[in-house]
Design a protein around this nucleic acid. Structure first.
Lengths: 190, 190
DNA sequence: TGTACATCAGTGAACGCGCGTTCACTGATGTAC
DNA sequence: TGTACATCAGTGAACGCGCGTTCACTGATGTAC
């Protein structure tokens, strides 16, 4: 049955929320259309009214995942706080609301062109935002520092989540926290 | 038809080679049993003679992927060479023979228990091997350095492969290479 | 050394299942008069 | 304001397809005599 414009927009937003969460929790290929729409409280058919295909939904969901994580972390203006929050157990244990790179980064090369473009644009924005928190006069060097830092952060999170040993997992987070928090941050230039 | 012991062992080894390569190229969930066995020149049924299930094959393939990459990189005794080789275009463009963490790291949390255990043990070995190349008297601090370095290396590779923009991809590799190659390496302790 | 036969790696039809997608249909919404 | 009807978000049966796995079968291997 037809539904009011507001309700429809609400449903669309809810599908995106659910997709952004489930894709990060179980991987893009680990979430079927039916399971996803079930969680959103709709039937699978209506996904195609809103998005046309799983691939197009994935592109929008990746965008949504990046920006909702960006809102959470964009508010942080202190570099050490940023690192501590990113490399926290809380973040490790809640991939569904966490960093998109850490959650589905290695799935991205297997995705369609649109998804990869969305991912690339979002990665550039992350780099720019993070570089603004870094010290140094040379803007390009700060961007390079930001890239290296994003690599360490996301790489640490991937390892901490992959590993079966809680002690080792904690140790990975702590070791990277300590090494990124020192003076110039992440090997630093500037 | 039955096949000689030598031939059977050869076939088993070839299945592992193919699986270790394809899983890294397309992801574990991106490779079906039939495609895999086709590439190995056998029919899908015989996979179950050798491994029993895809999950058990995956565990052995992850082990095999780690150790064949370890052979290639274990020979490197110079830290700067290690970093340069790891963060090379050659490595980025050939995931099938490359680092397992970078290729399927974020898929590991969704795998079965055995796969995760194999991955964890292999990650510890990588840490130990890399820590032997690092400076500093404190062994535990060198291990922590190694963990942070593995995070940066694999994270950089994931980003460089995910991104759709060749310039940005090269830049990620170069930025991380420069920051890991300086003096103390990777933010360093010791 | 020659023969009989048990072993078992490899084959491929068939299984149930879940995937992404299509499409005829439903019925409340929202608009034209 | 009241009525007629076009719109379209949402439904769910059905599609072809590929998945991982099973299992009866094949036939060369390798062993017992």
């Amino acid at each position: 049955m037809r539904v009011s414009k507001e309700k429809a927009a609400e449903n669309r937003a809810r599908i995106l929320d659910v997709a952004a969460r489930l894709f990060r929790e179980r991987g893009v290929s680990g979430v079927g259309v039916d399971a996803l729409m079930d969680e959103a409280g709709l039937t699978y058919g209506s996904l195609y009214s809103h998005f046309g295909s799983k691939d197009r939904l994935t592109a929008e969901a990746v965008e949504h995942a990046f920006s909702s994580f960006g809102v959470k972390f964009g508010a942080i203006k202190n570099l050490n706080t940023y690192v501590a929050e990113y490399l926290s157990r809380e973040h490790r244990d809640n991939p569904g609301s966490g960093c998109t790179v850490a959650a589905i980064g290695c799935e991205i090369p297997h995705q369609g062109k649109t998804v990869r473009q969305v991912f690339t644009a979002a990665a550039k924005r992350s780099m720019a935002r993070l570089s603004a928190l870094l010290p140094g006069r040379d803007a390009r060097a700060r961007e390079d520092d930001a890239l290296a830092m994003l690599a360490t952060l996301s790489g640490a999170m991937v390892l901490a989540r992959a590993v079966d040993d809680p002690e080792l997992s904690d140790r990975i987070l702590a070791a990277c926290r300590a090494r990124l928090t020192r003076k110039g941050s992440g090997g630093s230039a500037g």
